[in-house]
């Protein structure tokens, strides 16, 4: 059964002569537990596609369904609730909140849930333990390295154990050693059952996925299984 489905999605920005078609009529299906990479050059529309799949950007046309729910038919608040429960996001450049320490950043998605404070802390510490940063829980983001910040961003994305993880260039600001560590972490999360949709322009990183999708000029160029799976 398809877990995430994009049906004829199109996204246009601007109006009249300034109109730009970022994504043009894409159909895409992702199975539960699948790890897919979306590749493409800058401006190809891959991040726009990811935003639409993640409920962050409503398409000009078409539908996005997750667990057979048309997510853009949901009201604003319901869609926010849906994102909180079903999705985790890893953004470019980590995007940690600078005035919150590591554990507070990880707890951020739990701030509006009904978990007790004790439970929130337990979940955050568990997430930090999974990424190996439990000992840096009280540091501020600017007191840890870039690789560590990326791992904190991953911990924040998975702290409430969402079934889907969207990652936009998660290794874009990392050196090769840190990139490899992050990719292995994503592989691990995927092996634990999380569906992962990752945007990258690195072929090496893309090959960690089960399937690679290439987007060019807002259209799906091809969808393929990588030649080798890095495990």
């Amino acid at each position: 059964m398809n877990y995430i489905e994009a049906l004829n999605v199109k996204k246009e920005f601007g109006e009249g002569d300034a109109k730009v078609v970022a994504v043009s009529s894409i159909d895409l299906s992702i199975r539960q537990g699948e790890f897919i990479s979306i590749m493409g050059e800058s401006g190809s529309g891959k991040s726009t596609l990811l935003s639409m799949l993640g409920g962050l950007l409503s398409p000009t046309r078409g539908f996005v369904k997750i667990e057979d729910i048309d997510i853009y038919s949901l009201k604003r608040n319901k869609l926010a609730d849906f994102r909180r429960e079903f999705m985790g996001f890893i953004f470019q450049s980590f995007q940690l909140v600078p005035y919150l320490n590591v554990i507070e950043n990880v707890q951020l998605p739990l701030a509006v849930t009904h978990h007790s404070e004790k439970e929130k802390k337990r979940l955050a510490l568990s997430a930090l333990e999974r990424i190996g940063l439990k000992d840096k829980a009280l540091r501020l983001p600017n007191q840890i390295s870039g690789g560590e910040q990326e791992r904190v961003a991953i911990a924040r994305a998975v702290v409430n154990e969402p079934p889907i993880l969207f990652a936009d260039e998660p290794t874009g600001n990392l050196d090769s050693r840190n990139s490899e560590e992050v990719m292995k972490l994503l592989m691990k999360l995927n092996s634990e059952g999380q569906t992962i949709v990752m945007v990258t322009h690195s072929r090496t990183n893309a090959e960690y996925a089960h399937r690679i999708i290439e987007v060019a000029d807002g259209k799906l160029k091809y969808s393929e299984a990588p030649i080798k799976l890095a495990v």
């Binding site: 926010a80 994102r83 909180r84 429960e85 985790g88 998605p109 701030a111």
Partner: peptide, 16 residues
């Protein structure tokens, strides 16, 4: 803006 965008993306409602 960027911080508020992240709050919104990770599931904060407008009221939050």
């Amino acid at each position: 803006t960027r911080e508020i965008g992240i709050f919104s993306a990770i599931g904060f409602r407008s009221s939050h």
